[in-house]
Amino acid sequence: MIEAKNVWKIYGKGEAKTIALKNINLKIEEGEFVMIMGPSGCGKSTLLNILALLDTPTKGEVYYKGRRTSSMSENERAIFRRKISGFIFQQFHLIKTLTALENVELPMMLDERDKSYRRKRAKKLLEMVGLGDRLNHYPHQLSGGQQQRVAIARALANNPKIIFADEPTGNLDSKSGMAVMSILKGLNEKGITIIMVTHEQELTKYASKIIKLRDGEIVEIINK
């Protein structure tokens, strides 16, 4: 489904040059729950951003279903992020001026769905993540765990095939973290591919594949 071939990411030039990723080669199949692990600063988030087409590699190629993503136009990349993938952030990144319901509607609005469909689906998704009673609350009126669940609902808005999650439990207490992980596990069981960055060892039980990074290189790939 997603394949990285000889991917490098280099920031800066000359003495200021930093190699974030070195010669990454990996293949992720449909329906997998992949965890990218490693210490801080090892390039986990950079790799996730490249796989999610938020960033481009300095060298090498990323393929989605056999198609070179470097040949995609800016618009095609936006469509990929909107329709094919969903992204969950560590800091939740909800739009402050929108309610929970409107935040979930946003990707559908970008996809030019009509209002009644958007409303119905957003309600359904928020109910699914246990926030049916918080539809009209603004982000500042929600707890961290609730905000992250809104972010998950938003990521699911356009029926994505893949969910990219960048340390989704990093800013949550253990109870909220477990609630988020069980939602992600449930989604994976429904056939959605999950690619998640974490450095929490205890979360590996949810994964079907673990990719370990150190200093920008893959040191180990564990298939469960």
Binding site: E74, A78, I79, R81, R82, K83, H93, L110, R154
Partner: peptide
Amino acid sequence: EIGVMRSIGASKKD
């Protein structure tokens, strides 16, 4: 906020 919108699929045009 602009970064978030781009990451959830907003194009430059949006």
